[in-house]
Design a protein around this nucleic acid. Structure first.
Lengths: 217, 217
DNA sequence: GTCTATACCCCGATAGAC
DNA sequence: GTCTATCGGGGTATAGAC
């Protein structure tokens, strides 16, 4: 029989596709091999185990979220970058619910013993990116003074918690209603975190992504 | 060989123990059967599939959380019940991290196609219990007026989100530090949700569980 | 080096005997 | 209601072809 060579990247691509379709159970070494026109043991030239493949999938998920977030840096002011980052986070979670939940799923759900350092780092990096947006907004007087890390974590927790409840089906409402509830809940929380300057400026940002040409290339 | 009969309850007990120890992968029909001194096909008299066993495990997790929460009803005032419910929720999550994460894990992580109605109901019930505590506090003037469901969801999201980040390892701090950060973050959020009456009464509640004899039976 | 072929063991699930 | 026997599928270690 003919033999064909294979790239690590192709395995990961196939794994991501299978994962999005069918979760951890949808990813099997034999299945990936079949997809790629190869036999299972060949995959072990590139990955030591299925667990290592799954690490790659989770890493890829973080990479895609990072891609969504990165665009927020093009915003002209700290407050716009803050808002765009929040919107990007929300959009990623709603566009790719399974990948989103994967990033917070706990190692045993992904067939891992512990969270690999690589994955933990990526998780912390998301937090750092967000906290940087918060820091800017404190410096520019949009948010009340305080530790950017602690304040940022409060907001991150709120956003992730709400998304988690929604994606899990605990909030049985359609996506459009959820986006409204998300905004309302965010605003409720911001009463304690924003300054008057924040309140004044926030309303003017409703159409920022339409106005800012740099963000719709 | 001698044959022995088996109860559904025993299977579930064993399944919960195995699950807490090793996650979904730690639960196998053959393993459970071995634990119970029986062969695997015998289990299928009580459960149609492994998936159904896992539904039982998740249900059990919800039941245990409900047990934690139920004690909060013994508090003498709405604010005390509110606080005790919050503490119970936090304690359950920190005492049983794997069971806690299970309740929000998404069906595919538990080997299910969809969230069974039974599980969804239990999830909503937790929300309703909490929202009832919020409703009481609004009525008694501890929380600002508004929809109890929406305000309750905001707080639930914050608590779950923070716990989720911590249990996932995104906040690399010891449990004691996390409890402090949780309190601080909760307080930050409550600036926008509580009344002056809440602010005044909250400090006096720090030792409520020591003082209230009904809660340490 | 990179693949194929094979094999081992664990798993979920079913059929049919007692 | 349980057993034995069995099927299909999965992770992965090893041996050997090119």
């Amino acid at each position: 029989m003919l033999t064909m060579t294979i790239r690590r990247e192709d395995i990961l691509d196939s794994a991501c596709r299978c994962y999005v379709e069918g979760g951890v159970a949808g990813v099997s070494m034999r299945g990936l091999a079949r997809d790629l026109g190869v036999t299972a043991p060949a995959l072990y030239r590139h990955f030591a185990s299925k667990e290592e493949v799954m690490v790659g999938v989770v890493s890829e998920a973080y990479g895609r979220l990072a891609g969504y977030l990165h665009r927020a840096l093009e915003g002209p002011t700290a407050l716009v970058r803050f808002r765009l980052a929040g919107e990007a986070y929300l959009s990623f979670a709603l566009d790719h619910p399974r990948l989103y939940l994967t990033m917070y799923a706990g190692p045993s759900f992904l067939g891992m013993q512990e969270i690999p350092e690589e994955v933990a780092q990526r998780g912390c990096a998301i937090g750092r990116f967000w906290n940087d947006r918060v820091r800017e907004c404190i410096q520019d007087g949009y948010l009340k003074p305080g530790s950017p890390d602690e304040i940022g974590t409060t907001m991150w927790a709120h956003a992730h918690g709400l998304l988690s409840l929604y994606l899990r089906g605990v909030l049985p409402i359609p996506e459009e209603a959820f986006r409204r509830e998300f905004d309302a809940s965010f605003w409720r929380m911001m009463v304690g975190l924003g300054t008057t300057r924040f309140d004044d400026a926030w309303a003017g940002l409703q159409n920022v992504d339409v106005e800012s040409a740099a963000l719709t290339p």
